[in-house]
Each structure stands twice: as C-alpha cells, then as structure tokens.
Design a binder for these strands. Structure first.
Lengths: 169, 169
DNA sequence: ATTCGTGCAAAATCTTTGCATTCGA
DNA sequence: TCGAATGCAAAGATTTTGCACGAAT
C-alpha cells in the first residue's frame, strides 16, 4: 500500500476511481483488499470493516471507512445491502454471480441464493418505468429454521393472551 | 378514541392486538387511523407519522410512535420498508395488493408496481430454505427519469469534492 | 503546487430505553 | 386492581461533517 505496483494500473476498481478523478490512497487499497479477501458471499458493515482494518494493523479511521464505502458504492463498485438491522452492509460487486438474500428477523442470519431471473426482472421493470437501474435487490424476511423452532417452543403461552415474552427482535 | 365503539371489536388490527395480549389505546387507534387515511400506496417514516400526529392535534410522543411501529410490524400488521435512506418507512399491510418498489437514489422518489409473481417467488424460495416467510421485498435502485437527465447534463467530476452540488443523496 | 483525502472530534440522525405516571382490561 | 402503555428525557447506535494537516497527482 505504500508501493503502488503495476497491478494497480490495470485494476478495474482503481481504473474506475481514476476515471472519475479520485485518488488511489493506501486506505482505499487496504479496504479493497479486505473485501477481496472476504470469503465468497460475505458482506461487511462499516463497523465490521473498520474492525478488520484496525485488527490488520492498518490505521484507517472510521470516518474514512464510511467515506470510502459511500464512494465505492456511488461508483457501483460495492453493493449496499440493507437488512433492516439499523445499519448497512456492503459487498464487492466484481466477480459476483447475481444473488439475493433471505434474512432471519430474529437472529439476523442471512442466506444467499443465486438467481439471474430476478436480476433481469429488475432491469426490465426499471426500464419499463424509465429508470436507469443501478441494482435490484430481492429480500425475503422470515424466521430461519432455528428461530422458527424456538418461537414455537415458547409460543404456547401467547395463545392464552399473555404478553409475548419473546418479541421478534 | 376515547369511545371504543363496537367497530373496534371487529377490527382485524385490534383483534390481532388483543389476541397477543396487547391493549387498545387511544394512541394506537390514532396511529392506525392515520395509516388508513393515507392515500393508497403511501408509506410513512416514524418522523413523518409523528408529524402527522402532532399536526392532527393528537399528543402521541415520538417514543410511542416508534414503539407502536415496531409492535405493529412484529405482528405483521405493518410492512417495514427500508429504502436505504437511513430510516425506515411503514405501510399498512391490510387491503394491499402485493407490490414492490423502485427507488431513485438521487431524489428518493419511489414508484410502486404490482406483482404477485414476486410475492409467490418469495414464498417458494423461502420455503425451499426452510424459512417461515414474513415478507418478500423486491427493490430496484436507480435514477428516475428526472435525475437521469440532470445527471447527464452536469456530468460532474468528483463526488466528494467541493463542486459536487449534486451529490447522490 | 494544487487540491483531494484523512484523522479527529463534534454534531447530526435515527432509534431505544429507564423510570415515574397513567390507563386499559 | 395490576400490569401494560405512555411521556419525557437521557442514552445508544449509526453516520456525517468542519477543519487542519498530510498525501497523491
């Protein structure tokens, strides 16, 4: 990151940055690297990313973390995911197969599933309304197998009209 | 609201509340009424709802507004929408035709479109993964016709730089 | 040499919560 | 009556921003 190697010149993400007049900084390189090292299908919140940055010895401030996530998202390099948890998650768009998410509203676990049909549907519907489509996201909210079971175990009470001890979230 | 008429007994929303042991309060009645008076297809954020409450002369605190939105959502009476704007929106589920949203990332305008196919797809995909599906949301993010035009006219250079009069969001 | 990007801390948003009081069932 | 619901204000959580300094081009 203090040594901008040749590879950076060809890197598609850095090319996108340069094309719009943005600079290649050590912080941006590090952040990009973390996303690329992420196991396939993972996504990070700003806090999680910042945690990994600190952990890896890189001194990237939280403010820069947020600024970089916003920048890369606005350039279409990151996909901004909102699982209704109060904060956003981000995943690298490059090399990703079109996929969508199922989210457990009780434990926040997420499951991915591939689907190019939905991807295409998003494009078509958007065009039909004269939008320039940036991203289409299909989210299925529900209870994962585990939480579904737990909910049933402690649910017999509420049938009687007693207060729901186990509120979702 | 100080006079629980017969209609309340039959009201499906109040029935849901009672069934779970929750009480029918003036605040909850008022909030429900505001949602019902809303033009079809509209949705409100917590702040917007609270504004309408104050405006209508009802003294419902912001805290109660938030608590009620959360409660009604957890009971499946409201649909919680997240347009990645930093806050959530809510719409009444009753009497609504399955529909999804297109969101302009520049001006936050939203357009609805009906689609039962996506609704069914959500159910099917969820079941396939053993989830108990609560809601399926398809969101298309992009630029609305207006913002698409504006963006082209002033093809600005930098997003974070000074002259970025027109920041996406 | 510019001027963009960063770090820091303060501020702005949005949402939740503790506690005393009020009110519905 | 008795516990749930409310209001208020304080606290939390997340994200943004002003400013001075350091770095990329």
């Amino acid at each position: 990151m203090t040594d901008p190697t040749e590879s950076n010149i060809a890197d598609p993400v850095f090319q996108s940055l340069r094309k719009r007049g943005h600079r290649i900084t050590a912080q941006r390189e590090t952040i990009l690297q973390i996303f690329r090292d992420l196991p396939h299908g993972n996504h990070l919140s700003a806090e999680e990313l910042h945690g990994k940055l600190v952990q890896s010895g890189s001194h990237v401030s939280l403010a820069t973390t947020y600024r970089t996530l916003k920048l890369l998202s606005s350039l279409g390099l990151l996909r901004e995911l909102d699982f209704a948890e109060g904060h956003k998650h981000y995943e690298l768009k490059e090399d990703t197969v079109p996929h969508q998410h199922i989210i457990c509203v009780a434990c926040n676990a997420t499951v991915e599933f591939e689907d190019h049909f939905l991807e295409e549907a998003g494009q078509k519907i958007g065009l039909r309304h004269n939008f320039e489509v940036i991203d289409a996201q299909f989210k299925i909210f529900g209870l994962c197998p585990d939480c579904k079971r737990k909910a049933r175990e402690s649910d017999f009470v509420s049938e009687q009209g007693r207060p729901a001890k186990m509120r979702i979230k």
